[in-house]
């Protein structure tokens, strides 16, 4: 347990590269690299020590390498002031990073067939996962999609690591025109798959989960919910998730996730408090007479 505890460190930037529509930042962070398991993320402070931006930015770890004692790479598209600041970092600048955070992808014990489905920047955590699965003798098939060619992630690496790699773009500028969920059924038909791993926007994860259910294949999804702290204290990144006991709880993506079993996430209720969620307005413990329970309590 304690071996997997996240650490907070001031990490020197090694490189900042432009990769199509994304920036790739590599930092020297041995403590994070050595603890990292696929699917985990880091939370990066932006704007410097007296920053007016108090939320940490969460990024999936895309790669770790043993260089300089351990490096960590993450990718992002510039979307606001925080990511713009990050894109301006230069070699040897220091970044305040916490990680690795979150529940990693569970790994199969046996060398099974795995389909990895990624949407846009959501493809990032699937690459270390693919390498890990290959080392365990698993077959890996990639389905990667994005809005346009410049947002499709690491196509060359995907082709090299995977048995097959299928690409989709909304505008047809690369691969098949359409969504990953348009291409996924064919991939599942062609290769007998044992597990699906997916990361991307919520609507995509919902579709992938529904498709996997149709083929009766277990699916692990990594959600991209907005976070403020990444460490489990701010209660921002909640999604309704059904627990082992059948009860829906507002689960924190950062510590209870970001990886969940697809069928446990109540995708249709994301952005709401489902009426039957634990502690929803009007909720009462099963089998309890609320009035007498209150008086007896």
């Amino acid at each position: 347990m304690s071996d997997f505890r996240p650490v907070q460190m001031r990490s020197p930037v090694l490189t900042v590269r432009r990769v199509d529509a994304y920036y790739a930042v590599t930092v020297v962070a041995p403590g994070i690299a050595e603890r990292f398991r696929s699917g985990q993320f880091i939370a990066v402070a932006v704007g410097g020590e007296q920053s007016s931006m108090l939320s940490r930015r969460a990024f999936a770890i895309h790669d770790v390498k043993p260089d300089y004692g351990g490096t960590v790479e993450f990718l992002f598209a510039v979307r606001g002031k925080g990511t713009a600041w990050l894109a301006e970092r230069r070699s040897r600048d220091l970044l305040d990073i916490v990680g690795p955070l979150g529940r990693p992808f569970p790994l199969p014990r046996d060398p099974v067939n795995c389909v990895l489905v990624g949407g846009g920047a959501g493809s990032a955590p699937l690459f270390p996962l693919a390498h890990t699965l290959r080392r365990r003798g698993c077959r890996v098939d990639f389905v990667l999609g994005a809005a346009s060619a410049d947002r499709v992630f690491s196509a060359i690496t995907a082709r090299r690591v995977a048995e097959t790699a299928t690409f989709t773009t909304d505008d047809g500028s690369f691969g098949v025109r359409g969504r990953v969920t348009d291409a996924l059924p064919q991939v599942l038909e062609d290769a007998p798959s044992d597990v699906v791993y997916a990361c991307g926007p919520m609507p995509m994860l919902r579709e992938v989960t529904a498709l996997a259910a149709r083929y009766d294949i277990p699916v692990q999804v990594s959600v991209e919910e907005t976070m403020a702290c990444g460490t489990g204290v701010c209660m921002t990144c909640v999604v309704p998730v059904v627990g082992e006991d059948g009860i829906t709880r507002m689960a924190r993506s950062c510590v209870d996730g970001p990886v969940f079993r697809g069928e446990r996430v109540r995708f249709d209720d994301v952005g709401t408090i489902p009426f039957d969620a634990l502690g929803a307005p009007g909720w009462k413990a099963r089998g309890d007479d609320p009035v007498s329970a209150r008086e007896a309590g």
């Binding site: 007016s52 931006m53 108090l54 939320s55 919910e225 907005t226 403020a228 701010c234 209660m235 921002t236 990144c237 909640v238 999604v239 709880r249 507002m250 994301v270 952005g271 709401t272 408090i273 969620a277 634990l278 502690g279 929803a280 307005p281 909720w283 413990a285």
Partner: peptide, 25 residues
């Protein structure tokens, strides 16, 4: 009693601050 809190989004970054409405989950 247990409390589910308010729906997401629950937080927004404001200058040198955070705006939040979590609803005591």
């Amino acid at each position: 009693d247990p409390r589910a809190g308010l729906p997401a989004p629950r937080m927004a970054e404001t200058p040198s601050g955070l705006l939040s409405a979590t609803g005591l989950q």
